[in-house]
Design a protein around this nucleic acid. Sequence first.
DNA 1: CCAAAAGTGTTGCGTATACACCCATGT
DNA 2: ACATGGGTGTATACGCAACACTTTTGG
Lengths: 230, 230
Amino acid sequence: MSSIIQYKHHDRFLLAVDCIIFGFDGERLKALFIKRGFEPEIGKWSLMGGFVNRQESVEAAAARVLQQLTGLDNIYMEQIGCFGDVDRDPGGRVISVAYFALINIADYTENMMQEHNAKWFTIDKIPQLVFDHKKMVLLAKERLQQKVANHPIGFELLPEKFTLRQLQNLYEAIYGNELDKRNFTRKILSLDILHKLNEKEKASSRKGSYYFVFDEKRYKKLETEGVKFI
Amino acid sequence: MSSIIQYKHHDRFLLAVDCIIFGFDGERLKALFIKRGFEPEIGKWSLMGGFVNRQESVEAAAARVLQQLTGLDNIYMEQIGCFGDVDRDPGGRVISVAYFALINIADYTENMMQEHNAKWFTIDKIPQLVFDHKKMVLLAKERLQQKVANHPIGFELLPEKFTLRQLQNLYEAIYGNELDKRNFTRKILSLDILHKLNEKEKASSRKGSYYFVFDEKRYKKLETEGVKFI
DNA sequence: CCAAAAGTGTTGCGTATACACCCATGT
DNA sequence: ACATGGGTGTATACGCAACACTTTTGG
């Protein structure tokens, strides 16, 4: 881009980040929204967002916003894209960069929910959202589906130990269709990223189902390389 | 995003778009770069770019830049993402939104090349580029590969009529590996998006190979729906 | 008649899918 | 004993990859 002198002649913009935070409750895929307590669009649901500051990168701004609103560091986060329509925000010309984030739903405390007027919504029952946030969420869901098909990031949404049933529920929730239990088990175990624990989850059945954790090394490898998961 | 009053208190940024323009010469995948005629980084190769204006959307800015630098309208274009590192541009804090574009290489005239000091580079012989443009190009190539695997956008790179060999060369160029002629032919014809013309290309063989064009309707359908191509 | 690229089918293999019964246990 | 969810194997279908020879024609 041009020279320093030319730079001065161009328009400047407010730059925001908006975060689609996904969570999984063991049954359904959820997204976190906050209820706006101020105008414009007071009372409407909205993504979590904030403005980018001069001295931070856009990505750092997204991480900061996530930290502020969830209390969590090192959240898995991926850029969805830039939303730059002229009238996307009736409050002024704001360019927004959207990110999606994956968190373990249990890490988001009741406190945090109250503090920010936040609420989890099942992914196919999303409320009306302000501005172009709905578009962002839909795109985020698509990207999540794409990514999850080849990378083990879905585990970011699970607690440290989980049952195969929960894992299958997660994939079913992300794709919105049912999977065959036997085929799913075979495939996921063949990837060799899971360790079976000697401990059973007993809440949801009499027999109890084994907990699994993932193998850190293999997990990281597949995260960068990618494999066909589904 | 907050209220109008709050908006005022936040930093504003220069916003640029940068375009990775892909072309295909029948043999190899190419990208178009321009030689900077001014500081900083004078004499280095760079993506085509420009600043976003207050009254236009980011996407419109990208289309405008493409129009200005190629003379072409209605170019196939897709957003890659936002690049917002603090020091990505030594000339100042500039946020850039990168797009990739696909054009028929024959549509880019010699005139245009000279006017903008532009040059096509084979995709795996990319010169040193300014700022983070190399990163953009690599990401663009990845996105192109992903997209082309499921959507017929590769045809944007071809002249209206083309031979199966040229089409195969294109896919080979995009993926950087060789394909089996028989398997490729079978697969691509089974998609039922091609019409065989009664006309042969005679330049590259004695026997001559039939030209094909694509079926507009089926093409559009697959573009939106997606199919497994490769 | 020869060189050079075009055009064209078959087979084997591996992966994905469909499908149903027994197991362990708390009540 | 029984109800509930957990855990497991096999048979089939399909898509993908490997593979080679004949055709055409300009020179």
